[in-house]
């Protein structure tokens, strides 16, 4: 418990260790701590930014989706309109074609009928002549009455 030169030794070593600590221990660890602090701050800021960007992207995606839906609806409406137009057009065309076919058929029928009438008429004439000639063969000369019969046939 005597006060002696131990005191001086301790004081000197105190200065040496403080100097050592100030020079080689404190700065590297402190700078590591500071660096980590900025790193963490940067990381947090980046996360915040990412979150913000994600929100923006979501909003944009929703807008695009809405637009696309609108466009799709327009396209469908147009298509429906167009299809009904096409249907109407084809209906019209079919009607016209039908009319045409009917008219043509009618004309043909008319023609056929006329031809048949003509044939029939000429057959009736020849039959009537044959009948009349058989009746008259006995009494009338066929030649003498030919003009008369032709006139009769034209009147039929």
């Amino acid at each position: 418990m005597n006060i002696n030169a131990t005191l001086i030794g301790q004081a000197i070593s105190f200065f040496v260790f403080v100097w050592f600590c100030m020079k080689y221990v404190w700065p590297p660890i402190m700078s590591a701590l500071e660096e980590r602090k900025t790193k963490i701050a940067d990381g947090l800021a980046a996360a915040e930014r990412g979150k913000h960007e994600q929100e923006l992207a979501e909003k944009r995606a929703a807008e695009v989706l809405k637009e696309a839906k609108q466009q799709a609806a327009e396209i469908i409406a147009q298509a429906q309109k167009r299809s009904s137009e096409i249907i109407d057009e084809s209906k019209e065309a079919a009607r016209i074609e039908g009319d045409r076919i009917v008219t043509a058929a009618n004309a043909e029928i008319e023609q056929e009928m006329n031809r048949a009438k003509e044939q029939l008429r000429s057959q009736v004439v020849s039959l009537s002549i044959a009948g009349a000639s058989k009746v008259l063969a006995r009494e009338i000369d066929a030649k003498a009455h030919d003009d008369l019969l032709k006139e009769l046939a034209a009147q039929l």
Binding site: I3, T6, Q10, A11
Partner: peptide, 15 residues
């Protein structure tokens, strides 16, 4: 527990 040591450090601080 040695006063030399504690005084040594205290005098260092004092200086």
């Amino acid at each position: 527990t040695d006063p030399n040591i504690t005084f040594g450090m205290a005098l260092g601080v004092f200086w």
